[in-house]
């Protein structure tokens, strides 16, 4: 119970910390906004108005690989939980991990040749 109380107090204090920062800023910081100040940073170039241009995103295939690996990681984790409860199923998990280790090494070699710009 004491632990739970401490968690509630800590959550409140952690939420208060950003609020205190904002209050401190409200007290100390000047507020004189202007159009020029609100322009986006352009690294020394003259700011220009809104334009649209194509923007190729590289390494997007890795985002797809992430979906596959996330499911595998979850499956491994659930298997581990099962083994903690039922050590008799250890053989299945060891076999699963052997297969996953071998396939992840194979994937490491083949990922090298994955085209990264679609």
């Amino acid at each position: 119970m004491a632990d739970f109380q401490a968690l509630i107090y800590y959550t409140i204090l952690s939420a208060l910390l950003p609020v205190l920062l904002v209050l401190g800023s409200k007290l100390l910081a000047p507020k004189k906004t202007s159009r020029r100040k609100r322009l986006s940073f352009e690294s020394g170039q003259v700011p220009f108005e809104w334009v649209e241009s194509s923007f190729p995103v590289e390494y997007f295939p890795y985002a797809i690989v992430y979906v596959a690996y996330a499911v595998i990681a979850l499956a491994v984790f659930l298997s581990v939980v099962a083994v903690i409860d039922n050590p008799a199923s250890a053989l299945n998990v060891v076999l699963l991990l052997a297969v996953l280790s071998a396939s992840s090494v194979y994937a490491a070699f083949t990922l090298k040749d994955l085209p990264q710009r679609l």
Binding site: G24, S25, A29, K31, R38, S40, W50
Partner: peptide, 10 residues
């Protein structure tokens, strides 16, 4: 804390 917190137009 004492610097202005500027919110860009975009």
């Amino acid at each position: 804390l004492s610097k202005e917190f500027i919110i860009p137009a975009r």
